[in-house]
Design a protein around this nucleic acid. Structure first.
Lengths: 338, 338
DNA sequence: TCGGCACCTGGGAGCGCTCCCAGAATCCGC
DNA sequence: GCGGATTCTGGGAGCGCTCCCAGGTGCCGA
């Protein structure tokens, strides 16, 4: 006797009836198409407000040619330490940019086991496009998806290069500015703790350091590669001090490594910044709470997320002549460590 | 002339044909219903694998009585500093628990502007349930959703109490253990920097401290409330030292505040842990990189996320006699600060 | 022998939209 | 005035599933 349970809320049909038009017209209004009279548009809007109508996502997706959803894919190949605050900031930006549009945000993490499935899912029409946050430069996922024809935007420059659209902080110029600042302070023996060679973010920051030193004819030999952990940063600092006990500045490619470096320097009796000036990168929470507070290069993660999303939505909207990739400005934040 | 574009991939009809059964039977196999012969089940599975079939989410949702999706709602009322690493850890757990099931994870952030819309969306049949991560104890959202009949699990005990299912770390016992540890070290004047009064996490950790002291007949007057920032932690520490310059231990309700406290203590010339023992809470990255490395109470955030998800899915599956709320064990991590 | 029940199966309506098509109304220049 | 473009509108097929219903089969106890 009981009717089959239905989802709550009014249907488009009901809106049409109240507005005194056909459901085709209501659909046109909802989707912002042209060829709708102002009169119809008004009355549809009124009806929607009156009934509290909200379109059924599943039905739109099924009937239409788009999924009304994008995926945020976190491609996790190690280095989760770096990823944590990075990720939260970016996410905030993504969400802000999506606000008000009828686009669902699906979250996927790239776990080793389901790489296959994931590609199938993403390219299977369940989403219109994807934001791929991939800190590991040689991750094949972005390329795979892109070649499968799925519109994507990668967060962080892919090492492989090629034609995949990406957004990244301007790591090169950020580092360059940091080094120029150290030089302006009169520092003459400027070392660096660089990121891993297989991550673009590591290489770009290293290039900036190199370039900054080269500008002033300074030697570019004091490099130690490390990964993005405080422990590795400490080891790298020890190595640098072994090679050059008289260095007077170090540019560390991530705040989290700088913490380790700071600890080693202090343990060895170096005064900061008097004896050794330290500059980090990221301006994470860690930077302001370090002792002494860390001078660092700030990247705006929320802007990062917004830009990725904007770029993807623009492509989905059919906009042309979009820039393939975009670099976001960084800025030096002066605190006490340099 | 061109056919209307269709999504790629095979349909259920095709699977049925290849398997030599009807689409009803294929549907039954996919949904794990009973009353399917072993023979049919096998051949359907073979056909699915052969064709690389993956069910269309929109169609399932439209036709069926459930949405096959859950929402992760980040209810952001300030205190984002605490939220960042917390959130990333929980998310990992949620995702891990969801792996392999055909349930989409939708992400929503609770921005002030769209509170109304959000409730409408969530209760409008777009999702089967929601995980609400809400650190702010008096957030009305959980209650609103719950009263609207949407199955939810809240991350973090709601202050209002009531009958909303939640998962939380066992903040009380974690703090209790920390204090007992300090007592076992022979400390006699144990202060605390507590969290805000309007957050359950703050109050529970404070209760643990109180209880631990009361067990040994010690005074429970050395309390300063603070918020979850290093700056506020520093101010709180200064206040404590003003009131009791001779304190010999401080239990800080969050690592991030402990950093500020540490800085103040060191600036005042207190040796850690010789003069003052410091114990934090959370075991975030901050703890291991602090100088000295922080003894702290560890909460397993991934487990936190897994448990929330498990609880929600179990409820959706119609399981009965589920515990209303669940507290997850914490453990003391001994480092150098105490 | 025969109902009754558990097990298994296929057919087909219909979920709530979008989008194609056909056609009506209006406007323009010649 | 008239053909054509442009603007607007409604009707209805169909997206890919789920779930109800009707019905078939085999096994049991009466």
């Amino acid at each position: 006797m009981t009717e089959r349970t239905r989802r709550p809320g009014p249907r488009i049909e009901e809106v049409a009836r109240v507005a005194g038009v056909s459901k085709s017209t209501v659909s046109r209004v909802i989707n912002g198409e042209k060829y709708v009279s102002e009169r119809s548009r008004q009355s549809v809007h009124r009806a929607i407000a009156l009934l509290g109508y909200s379109p059924n996502h599943a039905a739109r997706t099924l009937a239409g040619s788009k999924a009304n959803a994008i995926a945020l894919v976190i491609s996790e190949q190690g280095s989760r330490v770096l990823a944590d605050p990075f990720f939260a900031g970016v996410l905030r930006g993504v969400h802000a940019e999506l606000a008000g549009r009828h686009v669902q945000l699906l979250l996927m993490m790239n776990q080793p086991l389901d790489g296959q499935d994931q590609v199938a899912y993403l390219t299977g029409g369940h989403v219109d496009g994807a934001l791929v946050v991939s800190l590991h430069g040689e991750d094949p996922l972005p390329r795979t998806l892109h070649e499968a024809g799925l519109p994507i935007v990668v967060g962080g420059r892919p090492l492989a290069g090629g034609t995949v659209p990406f957004v990244d902080s301007d790591n090169f110029n950020g580092s360059l500015e940091a080094v120029r600042f150290l030089v302006s302070l009169g520092r003459e023996k400027i070392a660096t703790i660089a990121g891993p060679r297989d991550m673009a973010v590591g290489m770009d920051r290293l290039s900036g350091w190199r370039c900054g030193l080269a500008e002033h004819g300074m030697a570019v030999s004091l490099v130690v590669h490390s990964d993005f952990t405080p422990e590795a940063g400490a080891l790298a600092m020890e190595e640098l001090l072994r090679r050059a006990p008289d260095l007077d500045a170090v540019f560390v490619a991530a705040d989290i490594m700088a913490l380790g470096a700071l600890r080693v320097l202090q343990a060895r009796g170096y005064r900061i910044p008097t004896d050794v000036a330290v500059v980090g990168f990221d301006d994470s929470v860690l930077a302001s709470t370090a002792v002494p507070p860390l001078t660092t290069v700030r990247q705006d993660l929320e802007q990062f997320g917004r830009t990725m999303t904007w770029r993807l939505l623009a492509e989905l909207a059919g906009e042309e002549k979009l820039p393939l990739s975009m670099l976001l400005p960084t800025s030096l934040v002066r605190r006490s460590s340099a």
